[in-house]
């Protein structure tokens, strides 16, 4: 039904991305005004999206164009040596706060880790909110604990580095127990060994103020190959490098009860990722699940904070 605020926002975003020329201009600006195939890509991408939303298979050409546009607009830069890579110059204008974020996130990057079933089977992502509390999803705990909901030392570890292109020489941190679980919101607080925080390594802070639709956000985590729920585009987006720390920029697409919805490119291993405001590098949500070309869901920071506070 045309006319409501949310519908208009979806329309505006779709137009921004595919219709009203902004993408075309960006693409054109990148490849040069004489490079007409770039314009064709965006038009074809729009056609692909329209067809898929209507349940009609796009043509191979349309699909390739959509892959191009998604890779362009929703990239997943790697973290290397404690710093996030620059955005490609083609997408950088869409995220003007990225350079600031690259600096402001640095003290927190090594407080976000890959959660493994010991010794080294990657399952999801977790982040520290204090020197002994790791936040992740309840469904990650379920996998780690094989459904029992309980953990003891030796079952699971968290690796706070594990970056592409560098050796992870840090001893993994033991996960030693379960502090609390929120079944409905899919939150688990895991107990980890005390961490050494310094000026250059800090626990993540939560920003509990309500987020606005359109807020630029970043999901940081360890995406794993997930061809079942994401049958297309993943190799183009992730270059077959999975299970290493990545940061996915995107936008808050809407909000709901205890939830925010975003469009960062995420995969299965992103369960438990912090969703960070690109402006402040503070946590605005806890990523919990996502559905191909639909939306990603996260617990909002206010609900997360309410659950965490008694345990701090």
């Amino acid at each position: 039904m045309p006319g409501d605020k949310k519908h208009n926002w979806y329309l505006a975003r779709a137009e921004r991305a595919f219709q009203n020329g902004n993408v075309l201009e960006k693409v054109k600006a990148i490849v040069g005004p004489n490079n007409m195939p770039a314009i064709e890509q965006s038009k074809l991408a729009e056609e692909a999206l329209t067809r898929m939303k209507a349940g009609k298979k796009p043509t191979p050409k349309q699909l390739a164009a959509l892959e191009f546009v998604i890779r362009l607009m929703r990239p997943v830069p790697l973290s290397q040596n404690g710093a996030l890579a620059n955005l490609d110059k083609q997408v950088a204008p869409s995220f003007p706060d990225w350079p600031t974020f690259q600096t402001s996130i640095k003290p927190y990057l090594y407080s976000i880790g890959r959660i493994d079933i010991a010794p080294k089977e990657g399952i999801g992502t977790g982040f520290l909110v204090s020197d002994g509390i790791l936040v992740t999803n309840k469904h990650v705990l379920d996998i780690l604990s094989k459904g029992s909901g309980e953990l003891e030392k030796g079952q699971a570890v968290v690796r706070f580095k594990f970056e592409s292109g560098s050796t992870d020489d840090e001893t993994p941190t033991d996960i030693t127990g379960v502090i609390g679980v929120h079944d409905e919101l899919d939150i688990a607080l895991l107990k980890v060994n005390k961490q050494k925080f310094t000026k250059t390594r800090q626990p993540l802070a939560l920003d509990t103020t309500p987020v606005e639709t359109g807020l630029a956000v970043v999901a940081i985590g360890y995406p794993f190959e997930d061809t079942k729920r994401n049958p297309l585009f993943i190799n183009a987006l992730f270059s077959k490098k999975y299970g290493v720390k990545r940061a996915a920029p995107g936008e808050v697409s809407s909000t709901g009860e205890n939830s925010i919805y975003h469009d960062c490119s995420t995969l299965g291993g992103n369960s438990g990722s912090p969703i960070l405001s690109m402006k402040t590098a503070q946590v605005v949500g806890l990523h919990r699940d996502g559905y191909f070309l639909y939306r990603n869901e996260a617990v909002d920071a206010a609900s997360l904070n309410e659950f965490i506070q008694p345990h701090l």
Binding site: L63, P231, F292, L293, Y294
Partner: peptide
Amino acid sequence: PVEAATRMAALGNAL
């Protein structure tokens, strides 16, 4: 996979 992706995209869009 394209047909599967299309149906998933369409269902998400319907919601």
